[in-house]
Design a protein around this nucleic acid. Structure first.
Lengths: 337, 337
DNA sequence: ATGAAAGCGCTAACAT
DNA sequence: ATGTTAGCGCTTTCAT
């Protein structure tokens, strides 16, 4: 059923050469005469020869593939990170296998096992929301497979990481709201198991304290990362009859959810209530009014993660030495604040 | 540098068995006694043995991987399709390699070459917007690699396909607008090289004709698939001072772009102007007012594509017999019409 | 400059 | 029930 691929042997047979000669010729080995090289290259093209990189990986005990695990590829942020990784990987003739954990710990384990079996040369991960422990990463470390975390990291696993300075990002967003004269500022927070959410929440709290604004726990509403969570959070404020001047949300999707519920209640943004998000989601500039948010540069995060892992893979840096890269976020002021 | 993996031989050595016995035991071959099987399984676990599936692929001349090429994984629609493919593939112990063409013909060629070298068992593709010819698919067909197109198909290549009935989808959306009493209905169309755009446009035209509404070419505005295109399209109508009662857009992102420009001009949806999109993008239910749109079931498209290709891979169906699956779209009526 | 031999991990076919 | 052999395509090392 499976059609035989054209191999070096086929080329060799056709040219009455040995297959190792062909192999060397194809890789431009200095042993081989220019004549022969040319001949081999031409014949390879004629026969539509494709190197069997599986065989190569097999021989090397390592593929030219980088594994990437993200919670969800549909998410704007992760999609951009992946594009960044891809870009750098392609340039070095590496390909990537992208897996989704769907925020499920068990799926993450399955993904890792599958990637290990695929002899990945390196692994780039943003851990799932439900990841309980780091045991599954031990198998990766044990095999000396370079590992890089981005965005969400598992603290207890020793690995390089590329993270956004979420704390500072939250601080500058909150500073901005305060500088605009808002004093009663709510926060729609994310899941507290995730460092990203914790750091953003802490940045918000510390900035209020710094400015002598008392923390009102009633207007810190905890939830997830989706639009629904923004809707629900604002509903809680309504129930409390406790409408703030402004809201800082853990991300842009939550802000978009809040928009809907705010409009539903006949309030205007930013006149009645200002709102600032986080992440610079593509949609944030398209909603009305455009959303003030914090830019994270996901494409750069992806590129940097790929560069770090490739340095380790190609042996240019010591895999034992963990590198920590912190991306500085940037405030984008739009009409919502 | 690369740590040696635990292999069947290591297990064999430890148990004083032959490696082929171990191999059979691991695969639960009837030749092997239960005692030995148990022993082998236990030892494998102890040593943290992982089968080297690269070696297996190498031997079989085929991996257990399905290649997937989409224009962009960040797109809601494609992300869902991919999830659908993944779901079905996982169940059959297949993994997927996702590549993005970024709507670039050359990148599509590079992707295909890389996937072929990876000995993919099958290929699922949505062609890029700039794909000029089908020559790169010949290499796939020649190797008897099952090929399935979804959504956008390359007509000249003989392959199974899963497509949405875009024509009918456009018809029901347009019918709906007419039934609501709108008569001057504009269409923000997509790129005419893409069958999807052509079919949606034709559905719109034919439905107007069917109802005796003359076609006004000035209010059919051509553009791309992004928000920007919706913004630009409505600006053109404004320039023409030719505001319609309603708009049918080629997809939801274009509709969202139109929303912005409509609001900017102080018009209300649906009172001043109604709008219907296509695709049931996640955001379509979150914008204000929620967008009437046509549901495409991308997750099902993915599942179906994967099922078709797996049948061919597993030899349950004749790869020569092309299958055409047409997904019937469904109108979702919301507040924008 | 070219050829020969060996081996990566696994499995299918055959032998004991 | 277990062992032996051979080979998938490629590269590395050594021989001619």
């Amino acid at each position: 059923m499976i059609k035989k691929q054209i191999t070096v042997k086929d080329i060799a047979k056709k040219l009455n050469l040995h297959h190792t000669t062909v192999s060397k010729a194809l890789r431009n080995h200095p042993d081989i005469s220019n004549n022969t090289k040319e001949l081999v290259l031409r014949t390879a093209k004629e026969l539509d020869y494709r190197p069997n990189i599986i065989a190569k990986s097999f021989k090397n005990c390592r593929s030219n593939t980088i594994g990437v695990i993200v919670p969800s590829i549909g998410n704007d942020f992760f999609a951009s990170v992946i594009s960044g990784i891809e870009e750098v990987a392609y340039q070095k003739d590496f390909s990537i296998i992208v897996c989704q954990s769907n925020e499920d710990f068990n799926r993450e384990i399955i993904n890792i096992n599958s990637l290990i079996s695929n002899l990945i040369a390196g692994l780039i991960v943003c851990i799932s929301q439900t990841t309980q422990n780091g045991d599954h990463f031990k198998a990766v470390k044990k095999r000396n497979i370079p590992l890089v975390f981005f965005d969400r990291v598992f603290e207890k696993v020793k690995a390089s990481r590329v993270v956004v300075d979420d704390y500072t990002g939250a601080c500058i967003a909150t500073e901005h709201l305060i500088s605009r004269g808002y004093r009663k500022i709510a926060h729609f927070a994310g899941p507290m198991e995730i460092s990203v959410s914790r750091n953003r929440c802490q940045g918000y709290i510390d900035t209020l304290i710094k400015h002598g604004i008392p923390i009102d726990k009633n207007i810190i509403i905890y939830g997830g990362f989706q639009e629904e969570d923004g809707i629900r959070a604002f509903q809680k404020l309504i129930e409390q009859k406790n409408i703030p001047d402004a809201i800082f949300t853990v991300n842009d999707l939550v802000a978009i959810g809040a928009y809907l519920e705010i409009e539903k209640n006949g309030l205007r943004i930013p006149d009645d209530i200002a709102i600032a998000g986080f992440g610079n989601n593509k949609l944030s500039s398209f909603i009305n009014p455009p959303l003030t948010t914090v830019k994270q540069s996901p494409y750069d995060i992806g590129k940097l993660s790929a560069e770090i892992i490739l340095e380790q893979i190609l042996g240019k840096s010591d895999p034992e030495q963990i590198r920590q890269e912190i991306i500085t976020p940037e405030l984008i002021i739009r009409k919502s604040t």
